[in-house]
Design a binder for these strands. Sequence first.
DNA 1: GCATGTGAATGGATTCACAGCT
DNA 2: AGCTGTGAATCCATTCACATGC
Lengths: 227, 227
Amino acid sequence: MSPADKTAAPEEAREQVSELTTGRLSLYLRCLTHLEASNRRTISSQELADRYHLNSAQIRKDLAHLGELGIRGVGYDIAALKRHLVQTLGIDRLRKIVIAGAGNLGMALADYRGLNESGFHIVALLDSDRSKSGTCSRSGIPVLDAAELSRVVREQQVEIGIIAVPAESAQAVYDSMVDAGISAVLNFAPARLRKREGVKLKSVDLRVNLESLSFHLKHSEESRTSS
Amino acid sequence: MSPADKTAAPEEAREQVSELTTGRLSLYLRCLTHLEASNRRTISSQELADRYHLNSAQIRKDLAHLGELGIRGVGYDIAALKRHLVQTLGIDRLRKIVIAGAGNLGMALADYRGLNESGFHIVALLDSDRSKSGTCSRSGIPVLDAAELSRVVREQQVEIGIIAVPAESAQAVYDSMVDAGISAVLNFAPARLRKREGVKLKSVDLRVNLESLSFHLKHSEESRTSS
DNA sequence: GCATGTGAATGGATTCACAGCT
DNA sequence: AGCTGTGAATCCATTCACATGC
């Protein structure tokens, strides 16, 4: 076990948690936030599952990663559980973000409330098009020259980079983000990036998503035809 | 192979293909399109894997779903494979799209080249804010009143809906899309939607993605601390 | 009695490794 | 020889089902 632990140490949840699990934890957090509005104090895994079309055993297993938070015969304390989720997900302090690419998508992301809410703060947009430097997004996020990246990251301690540039420049942007000291990247460019050690990379690919839908359309089409 | 070939029945690949697999098929298609630029005729699963950091066995397994397309000792014919992928993914004909929500995100998506490229066509944006009706996105996609949804879907045979409205209205928009006859939906709202029979639903949740990154940051932080 | 936490069972997806074709 | 297509092996995720504690 961990070097200096006593008790059942809430802090040292050092085991492996998969991507899929963290996604669900994030989801539970949102559900609890809804639930908090109604003035419930506790909720059972069963009720959570029913309300949000999930599986109660999976909820319990996921939540077990955070420690023994439930009370047998009762359920989970909503406020306490929320606190633990916030802490486990690491949004108990502000994480700063820069967005590379001040095109349509970059601008839309910069102004998207929900990215600029609790836990995250978008510090700047960066663009290699000099004519954009000095402008602002609608909500007031400044657009800087791409060359400013490493300065901004250093001075403001930015941890997360979002890539919203065309596919051709995505790899170069990714590399310069990593060099600047960013350690987690969310990529919207339709490109397969070469990852670098110790830097988390997640990609969201619109085209791939649409093509999956198309596949489904084609195939339900065909089953209808043959009936 | 000839353009109109029969032999091993390309059409009736009726087996189950998972979401994960279709995602990869879409990816292979993109890789092949790159590759086609250099004037290669064939490629082996091994080389594809090396170039794009994939696993060659998985590539072969995925491609086997499309029929026996490879040539032992040689590899796959790039152009032929591409044709098959296009067909399997169902983008061998145009699929029409509407976007609900003409805010920042909806507008950005409407103008995103790559969604408006081969295989897809965005027909309109819809918004319940009457003052937006009659305007256009930068690239010329018209904004219509939300009430027009079912007319547009019917008249233009729209198959795909994209949800880019706030979480509160996402379920209502989803339902009205389904009622209007749309059979595949890509949801960007941070809401857990109640699915309806026979309608494919994919969700892209920015917040969940960011929180996953945050989780990773928190945890690499801690491992560095304890060293 | 009720609901958690968890070992065991199941179900998928990925990877290995090789027989078989060119 | 080289590379595909695929059963077998492995790995990972989900679900079941129940002993355990409130």
